[in-house]
């Protein structure tokens, strides 16, 4: 157990890096994904096409490839992220937004069409119908799938280890080299750190799900 106190700084900063990667890219994905879902159900064909193209691109590309492109690919276009951490947030956010979009869109489709028709009959425009009538109901039904997306995202942050971000998986690689005789213990500590993020999330998702459930 000695190595835990010896490396407490590394473990703590790695944990915070993983957590902030997940939270920041989660926010990016939630906002962008919702906008994309609105575009995909909008009556304007160019918006629908653009959003569909975006979603299919990021949903069907391996995350490692997205990382590679944002870290090494865009340099060819003379673009560069200010730090490897922001590049990681961008890669995770863009990739996850495609999944958020599809989850939210399924929620929108689950709202009975009568709701939107009633809103239109009352004179609300498309934007008002979506933001005040459809989306509030849609979000309530997509809490479980969004929870899945969030937990997948928290684990996907480990890809950043291969791209110069010292998060938990990078710490794992470093500690197993130095503590070759305690590899199982190192694994246990790192897995526990991931569970500290994901288990309370799973619990919180269940609570929210119960609170916002629509009684029909």
């Amino acid at each position: 157990m000695q190595f835990i106190s010896d490396n407490s700084d590394l473990l703590w900063s790695a944990f915070l890096t993983t957590l902030s990667l997940a939270v920041l890219s989660g926010l990016v994905a939630l906002v962008l994904g919702t906008v994309l879902a609105a575009m995909r159900v909008s009556p304007m064909l160019p918006l629908r096409g653009l959003a569909t193209f975006f979603v299919e691109t990021f949903r069907n590309t391996p995350l490692t490839v997205v990382f590679f492109f944002l870290v090494f690919g865009i340099v060819q276009l003379d673009l560069q992220f200010p730090s490897r951490f922001t590049a990681a947030v961008a890669a995770l956010g863009l990739y996850t937004s495609a999944f958020v979009c599809e989850a939210v869109r399924s929620g929108i489709n689950a709202v009975p069409p009568g709701q939107a028709e009633a809103a239109r009959a009352l004179g609300l425009g498309f934007g008002q119908t979506l933001t005040t009538v459809v989306l509030p109901q849609a979000f309530r039904t997509v809490v479980p799938p969004l929870g899945n997306v969030w937990i997948a995202l928290a684990k996907n942050t480990s890809i950043a280890a291969g791209f110069a971000t010292t998060e938990l998986t990078a710490a794992l690689q470093r500690l197993t080299n130095v503590n070759g005789n305690q590899i199982l213990l190192v694994f246990a500590v790192i897995i526990a750190a991931y569970l500290v993020i994901t288990l309370p999330s799973a619990w919180a998702i269940r609570v929210i799900e119960r609170k916002v459930a629509i009684v029909r």
Binding site: F72, R84, A161, G162, F163, A164, T166, A170, Q173, R174
Partner: peptide
């Protein structure tokens, strides 16, 4: 120090 998982990425950087 920054660290990747393989040396080819270091060379790219």
């Amino acid at each position: 120090l920054i660290t990747y998982d393989v040396y080819s990425k270091c060379a790219d950087d």
